[in-house]
Nucleic acid binder design. Structure first.
Lengths: 200, 200
DNA sequence: TTTTGACCAAAATTTAAAAATAGTCAAATG
DNA sequence: CATTTGACTATTTTTAAATTTTGGTCAAAA
């Protein structure tokens, strides 16, 4: 790994710490720079703007979780098991990166660049779910169906459950209990969906 | 109907018009009173406070929609058909009362009274879904399952889809196209859920 | 190639004043 | 007695101005 990549990684890690602790809006680029004893100007040498840093972090997390899912693909016992493992992982991420993920949702999503980022992250999750479904079909565990559409629906459903669940206010702070409750509902939903797609 | 009930109804209708047009926060009690050529003080003779008026409106709408569902119960061809009819009705309400429903969601839900109202409306919807599921089970169309838990999950899922869908920002204004798209996803979700519960 | 201090414009925060609004009440009306 | 009202207040919400913070640039240094 080149020295510049190494520096970029250091920055990503430092920023990730602050973002997940205080949220994106509440951490300034200077603070991230200070943590690493760099000047702000130097930080901008590695990332053209704040958004690029956020993007890098987002993709870093997704890549990590993709790698984890890759492993689960071999270990899991069936489609539902895979889906539940994925939910578990996401739960762990939510707990770990709390504020970051909260912010990522309620940011200035109106702006085009945020929309496209959100859409890409969404599509990536849909892609993973698609692969899981495809495998289920290939193994004759599931009936054949429109994988693309159903995956999209599944991800939307799961995310919707996270948004809604009972803490009615979209912006309300979510505690660990709430996360656990959401996770339970998501597992139930996954079970029902898979049951609806199962080959019998 | 007593004369005081009649007056209360007039007030509810006038308020409903304004609420669904401009939203709750943006219509003052004076405006509602003016529409009916009453003094504000007189309006407060019929409703102790603004929240009571909002509550009355919410229950009015729910009651209406319950009556409509009651009719559908006899006409519908099966459980899925019933669920879809219910979704259609809700879609119509969203289109009709636009701002009101939007507001109802993003209001000061943190306050206890709002929470309890939201919870009650939710539970009422869950109750209706429960009846639909029970009927499906009684007719041997569905397998037996935990109706209470599943109904709650179903309503949460459907609402979650409405919140999420793709207009990522919770507060973004939703247009008719978006409503239609949400409706489609909800129908798909209903179909998959019912498929998962079907007795075969 | 990497790093920095000095700098700027735009955005966020704070503050105080002004306006609007929910809700009250004694008195009037019928 | 049931209904209505104008006048009043306490609290929010809006507005606007002053101030600070922050994202981002750049020429020059290491």
């Amino acid at each position: 790994m080149s020295t510049v990549d190494d520096k970029r990684n250091q920055i990503i890690e430092a920023a990730l710490k602050r973002f997940s602790h205080f949220g994106i809006a509440k951490t300034s680029m200077s603070e991230v720079a200070d943590d690493l004893k760099l000047s702000k100007a130097n930080l901008y040498y590695y990332f053209p703007d704040k958004f690029a840093l956020i993007e890098a972090i987002a993709y870093r997390i997704i890549d990590e979780s993709d790698a984890a899912i890759e492993k689960a693909f071999d270990e899991a016992e069936g489609t539902l098991d895979l889906l539940i493992r994925m939910l578990e992982m996401k739960k762990a991420y939510v707990e770990k990166y709390y504020m970051l993920i909260l912010n990522l949702h309620e940011m200035n999503i109106h702006e085009e660049k945020w929309k496209t980022l959100a859409k890409r992250l969404f599509q990536r999750e849909v892609g993973t779910i698609s692969r899981i479904f495809e495998q289920g079909i290939a193994r004759n565990e599931l009936v054949t169906f429109d994988v693309a559409a159903t995956s999209e629906l599944y991800v939307a459903m799961i995310r919707g459950l996270a948004m809604f669940c009972d803490h009615a206010a979209p912006h309300a702070l979510i505690d660990r209990d709430e996360i656990a409750r959401i996770f339970e509902k998501q597992k139930q939903a996954a079970a029902i969906v898979i049951n609806g797609l199962r080959d019998r």
